[in-house]
Simulated scan of single mutants.
Amino acid sequence: MDGEGASGESSSSNQLENWTEEQDRVKKKLITHDDFPWKLPSSTEHSQGSETLKYVGGVDISFSKDDSSVACACLVVLELPSLRVVHNELSLIRLQVPYVLGFLAFREVPVLLQILEKMRDDHHPFYPQVVMVDGNGILHPRGEPKHKRSCKM
C-alpha cells in the first residue's frame, strides 16, 4: 500500500472519530420531555407568556438515481391549524461528504441548515418554530445516552 492510501485511511478514521465524538456530545443534550413554551392552536389553555405554535417545517433530501452525490434538499413550512403550505424551498446540490452508515446527518444536515439559516437571516415571516426531520433518534444503532439530561441545543 502506498503512503497516500495509508494517509487517506488515517484521515477517514480521524473523521469517523470526530463524528462519533460529535454524536456523543449531541446525545448529552437529548430532551425526553416536552418543555417548549408554545401551545397548540386548538388548545383552550392559554398560559401567560406562552405562544401559539403556528409554523411547522419539514426538511428532507432526495438523491439522484444516477449519481448519489447529486441531491435536492427541500424545506416545506405549514401553517397550523389549516396545514396550508406557506413556504417551500428547493436547492439542487452536489454533496461532497460520502454516505457512511450511522453518520447520515453529517452528510445531510449542513445542507438543510443552510436552507433554514437563509430563511432566518432573511427574516422570513413564516420561519418554522418546529422542524421535523427524519431520523432514528434514540433508536439509532449507537443508542441513547447513558445519562439523560434536559437541555436545549
Rank of each mutant, 00 (worst) to 15 (best):
M1K: 06
G3V: 09
G3I: 07
G3S: 13
E4P: 00
G5Y: 08
E9V: 05
E9F: 05
S11F: 07
S12M: 04
N14A: 12
N14M: 08
Q15H: 02
N18G: 06
E21T: 09
R25W: 14
V26P: 05
K27A: 14
K28P: 08
K28L: 14
I31V: 15
I31A: 14
D34P: 00
F36A: 11
P37R: 05
P37Q: 05
P37S: 07
W38I: 01
W38A: 02
W38M: 03
L40E: 00
T44D: 08
E45D: 12
E45I: 12
E45G: 01
H46F: 03
S47W: 06
S47Q: 10
S50V: 04
E51L: 02
E51W: 02
T52L: 01
L53V: 01
L53T: 01
Y55F: 03
G58Y: 01
G58F: 01
G58V: 00
V59H: 01
V59R: 02
S62V: 04
F63G: 03
S64D: 15
D67V: 05
D67R: 11
S69T: 15
V70Y: 12
C74E: 11
L75G: 07
L78P: 00
L78W: 03
L80M: 11
P81V: 03
S82H: 09
S82Y: 04
S82R: 07
V86E: 04
H87N: 13
H87T: 07
N88T: 06
E89C: 09
E89I: 00
E89L: 05
S91C: 10
I93N: 12
I93S: 08
P98H: 06
P98R: 06
Y99D: 08
V100T: 09
V100R: 10
V100E: 11
F103Y: 15
L104D: 09
A105W: 09
A105P: 09
R107W: 14
E108N: 10
V109N: 12
V109T: 10
V111Q: 14
L112I: 06
L113Y: 07
Q114P: 03
Q114F: 04
Q114M: 07
Q114N: 11
I115A: 06
E117Y: 07
E117L: 14
K118C: 03
M119I: 12
H123E: 13
H124E: 03
H124G: 04
H124C: 03
P125Y: 08
F126H: 01
Y127W: 04
Y127F: 12
P128C: 02
P128Y: 02
V130Q: 00
V130F: 02
V131T: 10
V131R: 03
V131D: 00
M132K: 04
D134A: 13
G135P: 06
G135R: 13
N136L: 13
N136Y: 13
G137P: 13
I138S: 12
L139G: 06
R142Y: 10
R142F: 11
G143T: 15
G143Q: 09
E144A: 15
P145W: 15
H147R: 12
R149K: 14
R149D: 14
C151G: 07
K152H: 09
